[in-house]
Design a protein around this nucleic acid. Sequence first.
RNA 1: CAGGCUGUAGUGUAACGGUAACACGCACCGUUCGGGUCGGUGAGACUCCGGGUUCAAAUCCCGGCAGCCUGACCA
Length: 408
Amino acid sequence: MKLSKLFTKTLREAPSDETAKNARLLIRGGFVSKVMAGVYEYLPFGLRVLNKINNIIREEMDVVGGQELNMSVFQNKEIWQATGRWDSAKEVMYQFKDNFNKDQGLGFTHEEPIAATARHFISSYKDLPKAVYQIQTKFRNEARAKSGLLRGREFLMKDLYSFHADQNDLDEYYEKVADAYSRIFERVGVSAVRTFASGGLFSKYSDEFQVVADIGEDTIYVNEKENRAVNKEVYNEDVLADLKWNKSNLTERSSIEVGNIFKLGTKFSEPLGLTYTDADGNLRPVIMASYGIGPGRLMGTVVEVSCDEEGIIWPENIAPYKVHLISLEQNKKADKVYDDLANSGAEVLYDDREDKTAGEKFADADLIGCPIRIVVSKKTLEKESVELKLRNEKDFKLVKLSDISQSL
RNA sequence: CAGGCUGUAGUGUAACGGUAACACGCACCGUUCGGGUCGGUGAGACUCCGGGUUCAAAUCCCGGCAGCCUGACCA
């Protein structure tokens, strides 16, 4: 990609109505654009990052046997009434009447519809277990959207649903997914701590994955030794005793919830009639669990925890481009470097702009935050070299033109 | 949803109730070329919308809308 052709431009100053670091940097860098409170568009850079996050998620979902599908954003009132959630969800669910005076809802979660759909395909213990997921836009009428990408009214959600014949099977699978979640966050490049939280319908706790950050809305107590934490919402003497944790080993931290996994039991399968016949011919409700990750929120979280005064520092796995190539008045030579790198399969963002000064190019490179910066200039060419600098390091080194590909 | 603050060019800011200004960005000319170079010219704003007060409103008042902050809320 050549910067001279890019759809977006960087901003020298962030809009005054954004205070969250993630939104300020992402808007300045041209990754996202604000539409209204809690609603952002993903521009080319932002979408590249988001897609990389999504693909990591997909790979790990596939590892645990998740099958990707895509449900409708529209939600059917009847099935939500079946679980008694149509009215109780009113405050967060966008509900309206369409032109035929039919009630419509926009999904902020999909337990009801997936359970309804699963009725068509699950009828025997031989059909279990199954797991399906989607990465899809959710809508949520937040009373107060805030913190840039961290709490929006329209946001992306990866939701996985698993179906089981018995509790043991669910418990085993649940742990597999928890491991997959740990791998996802590790690959994305954030340190997420598995956290005991409330909301387990079929278990004592649900599990959240929390990233420690000042801007986070959650408060957790971290057990560093075990790399686990407990959410303030369930933090009390009984829980500590239950976990066999000592208060003095815990550190209170603010954190961002980037993932949450739940054992749902039969809360959805029973009212919606999602049942299977066991080996003895008995009709039983399917046992369910659901597992969520917010990819957009995750992207915002990465920016919150991985940046400096100059801009974003993308972890390599999700950087929009691996290499940010800068030409200082040497476009002919730099073009060749660009082509060679591109041919070798490297993802390169090439600053070929002829009307920008060195300072501006460096500032933009720091802001955009690709892991590797390569400069082609008169100075480096005198030594048949380019300058190579990592975004998260101060020093640079000279690399021979012929050795660039190998040094990445 | 309650309380508070704020709405001026693409972005950031200025303007006592009296001609809407400056910087960045943009276009053009020259200059410069390793950390947002320097100089010049130019385009770009019904000052969020509607009403009111006034000789005169970006400015004061009322209503609406929007954004932000704090809180409540957060399967």
